[in-house]
Amino acid sequence: MKHTVQRDWRVTRPSRKSRFNFDQTTALGGLTVALFTYIIYHFIYPLISKGLLW
Score class of each variant (00 low, 15 high):
1 M>L: 10
2 K>R: 15
2 K>S: 15
2 K>P: 09
2 K>F: 11
3 H>R: 15
4 T>I: 12
5 V>M: 13
5 V>R: 13
5 V>G: 07
6 Q>R: 15
10 R>L: 07
10 R>I: 06
13 R>S: 03
14 P>H: 12
15 S>R: 10
15 S>K: 07
16 R>S: 09
17 K>H: 08
17 K>P: 00
18 S>G: 06
18 S>H: 03
19 R>V: 02
20 F>Y: 03
21 N>W: 01
21 N>L: 01
22 F>I: 02
22 F>C: 00
22 F>W: 02
22 F>Y: 06
23 D>S: 00
24 Q>L: 11
24 Q>A: 12
24 Q>G: 10
26 T>H: 05
26 T>P: 00
27 A>I: 13
27 A>H: 06
27 A>E: 11
28 L>C: 10
28 L>V: 12
29 G>P: 01
29 G>S: 14
30 G>A: 08
31 L>W: 07
31 L>R: 09
31 L>M: 14
31 L>G: 12
32 T>L: 10
32 T>Q: 08
32 T>Y: 07
33 V>M: 14
34 A>Q: 04
34 A>T: 06
34 A>M: 09
35 L>D: 09
35 L>F: 09
36 F>R: 06
37 T>E: 04
37 T>I: 06
38 Y>D: 05
38 Y>W: 11
38 Y>P: 00
38 Y>H: 07
38 Y>Q: 08
39 I>G: 05
39 I>E: 08
40 I>K: 09
41 Y>A: 10
41 Y>I: 13
41 Y>W: 07
42 H>Q: 14
43 F>N: 06
43 F>R: 10
46 P>N: 05
48 I>C: 09
49 S>Y: 08
49 S>R: 13
50 K>C: 03
50 K>D: 11
50 K>L: 09
51 G>F: 00
51 G>Q: 02
51 G>S: 03
52 L>H: 07
52 L>A: 10
53 L>K: 05
53 L>R: 01
53 L>G: 02
54 W>C: 09
